[in-house]
Amino acid sequence: MDNFPTVLAICRTAMRTPNPTLTRNIGKLRDALSKQGLEDQAEALSLVLKAKQATDTLAPTRVALATATRERMSRSVHAPVDKESGAPLASIVFPEDAETGLEPILEVALSKAIAALVAEWQSASMLIEAGIRPPLNLLLYGAPGTGKTALAKVIAAQMELPLVTARLDGLISSFLGTTARNIANLFEFADRYDCILLLDEFDAVAKVRDDPHELGEIKRVVNTLLQCLDERRERGFTIAITNHEHLLDAAIWRRFDSRVAIPRPGAESRVRMVSRFLSGVPVEEVDISLLAWLTDGRSGAEIETLCSSIKRYLVMNGAGRKSLLEALSVNSLLSADHSGSPRQAIFAEGSEALARRLSSDEEIRFTQESMARLFNTTQSTISRWLRK
């Protein structure tokens, strides 16, 4: 189902004040998705229904943690600032201001796991009442452009909590002791309010303490960060993001209840991404398949960049079979360094070489009929190309 994360968030919100009709309709939607083979989406709705049933049995509602008394954040609240420069240490996005329709497209198993984690966060008070410590922090790591920050924003929107975002590289000061003080002030601010704290560029501070290239100051900073993370584990939700997980201190890893790798998209996810990013221009299924094939090994951000280039070309030069191939050729020339995308280099070799590669692909199936449509030629021509 398109926009399913938005539908899921609406269902979760509505189930806070459920009625028999609402519960029955969510059940019908779950069954319909299951019949369509969308088992991960059906399971996510089942978790919504099960979470409510468990809440009715065990008591507390809402996402308020029983172990902390925190204030509700209003728009008059401002993030703390660096006392030396006056620069804010974080930005604040309220749930009603969060962008919609930009949910990252994840692999099915990963999407299901994230949905389960969010369900646990939403049931934090219930778990505490049952004597179970809920996981309150999450580390997201992976290559740049794989959707880590977008995923954190979606989680905050689903939780209906303000997102306090701090780029840790922005907390670093040249003044001795100021960096550690900035981190302490940031955590003190987040602990005061009902919010999710997002630590972006986490590796900028959470580095290995025995790194010979680092001075003693970074070791003190890491120790401050460890102490703040320990205290916040009982007080509020925290998400940390890094592109360089290998730089993190081992003690930092142990502070996180959940550690999730966000991989580069697989074939199915790339097809869904291309479909989303090319919405608004006339393309066919075989075109989407070709672009999904070309972008093997690329991140979601890189796929979006390619699709934006194609959309610009098609809008300026007119849609059509010839225009799409021309758009790809132009993009291939403008992106001459193909070290990260060897398949795009093959595209530059010509239609015949590309057709032979497509015919042997095991992930995305191309028939002679679809390739004839793709290259705007006949099946007999495609057959001749493949025999060479």
Rank of each mutant, 00 (worst) to 15 (best):
R259H: 10
R259M: 14
R259Y: 07
V260C: 04
V260W: 03
V260Q: 08
A261Q: 12
I262C: 08
I262V: 14
I262F: 06
P263S: 11
P263D: 12
P263R: 13
R264S: 13
R264K: 15
P265F: 09
G266K: 14
A267N: 06
A267F: 05
A267G: 09
E268Q: 15
E268G: 06
E268N: 13
E268V: 13
E268L: 11
S269A: 15
R270Q: 04
R270V: 06
R270C: 11
V271D: 03
V271R: 15
V271Q: 14
V271G: 03
R272M: 14
R272K: 15
R272N: 10
R272Y: 04
R272C: 03
R272T: 09
M273Y: 13
M273V: 09
V274K: 04
V274A: 11
S275V: 13
S275T: 14
S275H: 11
R276L: 13
L278F: 09
L278V: 12
L278P: 03
L278S: 03
G280W: 11
V281W: 07
V281K: 07
V281S: 07
P282C: 05
P282Q: 12
P282N: 08
V283I: 14
V283A: 04
E284F: 09
E284H: 13
E284M: 14
E284L: 08
E285I: 09
V286F: 11
V286K: 04
D287A: 09
D287Y: 07
D287F: 05
D287V: 08
S289Y: 07
S289V: 02
L290Q: 02
L291T: 02
L291F: 00
A292Y: 01
A292K: 00
W293I: 02
W293K: 00
W293A: 01
L294C: 01
L294W: 00
L294T: 01
L294Y: 00
L294D: 01
L294G: 02
T295W: 05
T295F: 04
